[in-house]
Design a protein around this nucleic acid. Sequence first.
RNA 1: GCCGGUGUAGCUCAGUGGUAGAGCAACGGUUUCGUAAACCGUAGGUCGUCGGUUCAAUCCCGACCACCGGCUCCA
Length: 625
Amino acid sequence: MATAVLRLWPDALLDIGPPTEEGFYYDFELKHRFTPDDFPKIEEEMRKITKENQVFEKSIQTRAEALAYFESKGQTFKVQRMGDIPEGEPISFFKNGEFVDLCAGPHVMRTGNVKPGGIKILKVASAYFRGNEKNPQLQRLYGTAFKNKEELDNWLLMQEEARKRDHRKIGTEMGLFAMDPEYVGPGLPLWLPKGTVLVEELERLAKETEFQAGYVRVKTPHLAKEKMYKTSGHLPYYAESMFPPMEMLEEDERKKRDALMERRADLIQLAEGMGKAIAPNPSGYTEEQVRHDIQKLETEITLLGGRYYLKAMNCPHHHRIFAAEPRSYRDLPLRLAEYGTCYRYEQSGELFGVMRVRSMNMNDAHIYCTAEQFAEEFRAVNEMYLKYFKIFGLDRYQMRFSTHDPARLGQKFVNEPELWKKTEDMVRQVLIESGINYVEVANEAAFYGPKIDVQVWSAIGREFTIATNQVDFAVPARFGLTYRDRDNTEKTPLCIHRAPLGTHERFIGFLIEHYAGNFPLWLAPEQVRVLTLNDEAPLVEYAKSITAELRAQFVRVEGDWSANPVKAKIANAETSKVHTMLVVGQRDLEAGVVSVRLHGKGNVGAKPRGEAIADLLTSIRERRA
RNA sequence: GCCGGUGUAGCUCAGUGGUAGAGCAACGGUUUCGUAAACCGUAGGUCGUCGGUUCAAUCCCGACCACCGGCUCCA
């Protein structure tokens, strides 16, 4: 592709072009802006190149030769990329026809190995050079190539099928949720009645599971004073992702606070100057005194209060619940659970259907425990994850173990090298013992401790972090949380943050794509619909009595005894993805049976009414797939 | 937030410098029928918002908002 682009636009600057899961891309810097109208032209040129059947020739050059080559071509990005190759490593080049590029290895031996019909340019987008938003943006051309046209067409067809599973599309079609950016706001989904069913079924699952695992439930407000997030350490590091605070102060109080803050800023500057001890300090005002006064001002400012933040996480509230009563080692582990609603001001371009939103319901819980209890608790949490994955038939997942980076202690990560090592060892131990498939990634931990993120892939191939399990050895101490131990001393507990079902928003978005909207019976918004062959009174009576019986058993059932032809009624029920249809006609009425039809599977035959109902109830109770 | 694209009825989409259509859904009738769509009719829109060009703008231009594809970031 790069060869073709260079032929068409010789002034294009090249960055790099690696393969991806669906093909490949190449980044270019070019005055001309690519549009889809250019795609056929580029494809045409690529086809010519495949016909030329150029051989990919490898050559090794010295660093100086390579640099000189790219500099002579004015390829500044390539020159920068050269810096990424470690000193002493051979610099390999590949040449095909007139095109020469830095490359670790060719993906095919000759351009002719790709048949002209198998090539397609997919889309153009932009990307930051080296993925850093401070760097210039390049134009990224995505393309794909298959051995021949048939394989390409097959792949395109699959892409088309995948698009049909998009949770935004199905969510609208099925009436699960709605977005109202004009009145409610972007990223603030409204759960419609059918989507709320999913929300509540998941909550019920979580509540049952957590109850059995010894959790207790709590409820906390959606906002808190500024002091909360200063203490937790989320401010100012997290402020970017939080909704701006609500200012509660009256005009004069605000002036007072601003004055105090100004004074504080001055003192901080003074203290810094003193630290460097540039000038003599005739006033006799010592650095220690200044620090003390800053502290006093801090307290005064926070006591004025006046600022409330919508919570972006539940942990601080739970910490205050821990602090609300004196705790003994006998109370531990204390597992506080809540489906807490959090608000995060995600950047506008990051919003994505219901998968990435600004208001979210988290399947949250915080486990306060001793260091001795930690491994057992952590293992129990992991097991809960696996239990959920089994229920949802989720087999493509990966645990991502995120650890700290010792070089960034005190900046990105709290400066507790020993605790980091200790907790990371504990987590690693649990992972190895449980035989869980995981990868370890450095420098990705939370500021307060290592974490495990669970990556899942939806049927469409979208990858998401759906759940998280984090260790926190820092924030409980910042809140001064303690329990009285056996030896009558106060100790600080460890805290495990966990959210196996993530947020309703992302989890449901994921489930929609996972099931393509065809939910298992226990989750289905409309579980059963009773359909009559016609609208004659005795038949309608029969259908109504079945409906009433199911409804009394809390089955989500609707009835359709309209005068429409049964074919039409079935078509309606099928398009609404009703899980089970009970079709009744004169025959069924006389025999006391119902004809069972399953969504997507068709008619499965008649069953005695009582048996059909019992089967439904069992499947729901057992949450069968 | 950045780059590019898009914005017409509840949904999917046509369309034009002289103030708008189709299918499905909705509503009213007719149809009484055994496993994916019976027929007739009715209603529905400040053509994302604001401004500009023009005799005239849904169409051309600009700004903003929102959404989509990426990047960055994340549950």
